[in-house]
Write a protein that binds this DNA or RNA. Structure first.
Lengths: 144, 144
DNA sequence: GTTAGTGCAAATGATTTGCACCGAA
DNA sequence: TTCGGTGCAAATCATTTGCACTAAC
């Protein structure tokens, strides 16, 4: 069973219906592994697969997929959320291209090291962000 | 000369006028060092100092102060920008309380270490984010 | 047949902008 | 006096929501 089918099964097992829209969104996310896409980009690309798909449906499904820990959501500096399929099981961070959204995983996480240096007994840590931004080789060329 | 007067002088030297609104905004930022405040919070607190101050004026000045590298701006997960005065000269990151916005600086930056592990000759890095989130002791009590 | 899911259009919330007026230099 | 700055109201942009309808199951 492919990874995509696995996720579709997981959705059904959890009682969610497998609509055409939902399948189209998943297809889009699967065909853009390692890219953070905006909701708008996902909407456009999903419509290529299933033309009727509405923008609200995109948002509602992205919310669901995030809740199920199937996608990562980040808020870029321009105040638009971007989404990426989670296909690596282990905790990792990202290098993110500001031109095209392309990402590369960083397996190394500095959290433990930093916590050991800090000694903050009075602060309860819940989560952390670590992201490197820049331009991939393709986008560097375009900027010239 | 106090740090605040220094910044006011810097603004004037760069040709910006020192309006009552601008002074009030700076006062607010100075009296909330080590706290990320939302534009709304800054607006409310500024109005306590100079009642007439309009919301647009807040945004326009925050934009200016950010351009002049006098404040930090971060986008929290709830899609609202938060702002904090830059009063430490050296590069640092933040521990951020999700309850009250209170921050503590982290002097340690993992960037160099990570870049040395990565070997990404094809990617030009421009900037990075490293933030720890959680609850300060005060806000932990409130959550109980 | 049920009920979750969707489309549509309208609401929301943060932020931005155009324009006429105001006030710091 | 002169621009840069401000207030106001309207516009914008991303996202969310209410509600009637549709389609998985």
């Amino acid at each position: 069973m492919t990874f995509q089918k696995e996720i579709e099964k997981k959705l059904k097992d959890e009682g969610y219906k497998l609509t055409n829209q939902r399948k189209a969104i998943l297809e889009v996310l699967f065909s853009h592994k390692n890219h953070f896409l905006s909701a708008e980009e996902i909407h456009l690309k999903t419509q290529e697969k299933y033309a009727k798909t509405n923008f609200s449906t995109i948002y509602r499904n992205l919310e669901l997929l995030e809740k199920l820990d199937l996608i990562h959501k980040i808020n870029l500096d321009n105040n638009t959320a971007h989404y990426e399929l989670i296909h690596k099981k282990c905790h990792h961070h990202h290098i993110i291209c500001k031109g095209c959204g392309k990402t590369e995983p960083i397996d190394f996480c500095p959290l433990e090291e930093i916590l050991s240096k800090l000694n903050h007994k009075d602060f309860s840590f819940t989560d952390h962000k670590f992201e490197l931004y820049g331009y991939c080789s393709n986008c560097q060329k375009k900027l010239l």
